[in-house]
Amino acid sequence: MNRRIKRAFIVAALLVIISAAAGIFIGAVGISPITLLKDFFESGLSKSERILLYVRLPRVLGTMLCGAALAVSGAVIQSVLGNPIAAPNIIGVNAGAGFFTVLCLALLPGKLELVPAAAFLGALAAVLTVSSIARKIGASKMTLVLSGVAVSALMSAAQDTVTTLFPDVLAGFTAFKSGSVSGLTLAKLFPAWIYILIGLTIVIMLAHDMDILALGDKTAKSLGLNVTVLQLVLLGAAAMLAGAAVSFAGIVGFVGLVVPHIVRKISGTSENRVVIPLCVMFGSAFVNICDIISRTIFSPYELPLGICVSYIGAPFFIYLLIKKRGSVHRD
């Protein structure tokens, strides 16, 4: 491991620790670590402990899980589709997960444990639709993005139709469309984190094979890799990760686009044994920091998380488009 990669891991670890601590202690009601320590040895739950357990901890865990899942999902989608501007929100994966989430809440009210599974299916449907359209018509970088825009629009329209027909559906999911972790509880996180853990395990186990896939379909096949099966498994894992994140945090865009690029830039490599763990760390820190900003910048008002992420992610996407202009046109 070279010095640049080591430095990237140290920076990522520091960001995770500092942002997690900041997420716990900073908020409308400040919590002091000393007070918390004192309360820990007293009997019964103090106000600080209640805020920590029921508000801050679920929120910090939620933002970190959401960030890690979306960043890794983005890295996988970019790698499998061979497209640096592909990401869960760009190719309609988040919108697909969103549609199936509201559909599940509308048709099976009270079955919260089924929400991540529904979101996974929605995300999978979107990613498979986009990749088959792109395969059929030539899979240029721009075609893929445009197919994603179309699928995304369709899924969003379907989601709006459900919320219009079932207006009470999103009562428990405040600001779902803008992405929000406000009011998140450990119970809401429970089924989703298992999906995220499974998705991350699959991706980490296949990190080396993803590197082979990145060499191009022909080269990967000539090295003995079963390209079709690997692509399906990886896209399934990416859908599982994005779907699980959407199921509790709503539509949070741009994380899957921005974080893998930052990670590759900082580490100077696209080797997935480095990129994937760094995406977990930078992704969780990035979303957590955005959440801290979103709940403190206009305090006592709170911006939905997705809005804050978009303020950072959208300009970065434009920057990427300008930077990649040459290659996008050539394809």
């Binding site: 060499l215 191009g216 022909k218 080269t219 000539s222 490599t269 696209s270 080797e271």
Partner: peptide
């Protein structure tokens, strides 16, 4: 089978990707 064939035949396509990796990798 896939890997057995790859141990007998190597193939260099016309176009090759340029990933952000070192030559050694």
């Amino acid at each position: 089978k896939g890997k057995a064939l790859a141990q007998s035949v190597s193939y260099l396509p016309q176009n090759n990707s340029v990933s952000a990796i070192t030559v050694r990798a």
